[in-house]
Amino acid sequence: MSDQPSFEPQIVAFCCRHCAYTAADLAGGLRFQYPTSIKVVELPCTGRLDVLHVLRAFEDGADGVIAAG
């Protein structure tokens, strides 16, 4: 297994600015690390998340999408 290339999934995180995004911001302020393979997209509310945003993320190469709010 060790000679297999490691798979690091690309994740797009759609985060509500009032909770999850603020939490990520706080984590940054506290110098916590998270993988660079996670791309955070700030939303005014996760209610704004549309199926089209999820599809576009996958279409543009994401392996997973997380809606956090």
């Binding site: 089209l52 599809l55 576009r56």
Partner: peptide, 13 residues
């Protein structure tokens, strides 16, 4: 237009 965008995305994928 929204369903067209979804269909376009689905067909490309």
């Amino acid at each position: 237009s929204r369903e067209v965008a979804i269909m376009g995305s689905l067909l490309r994928m």
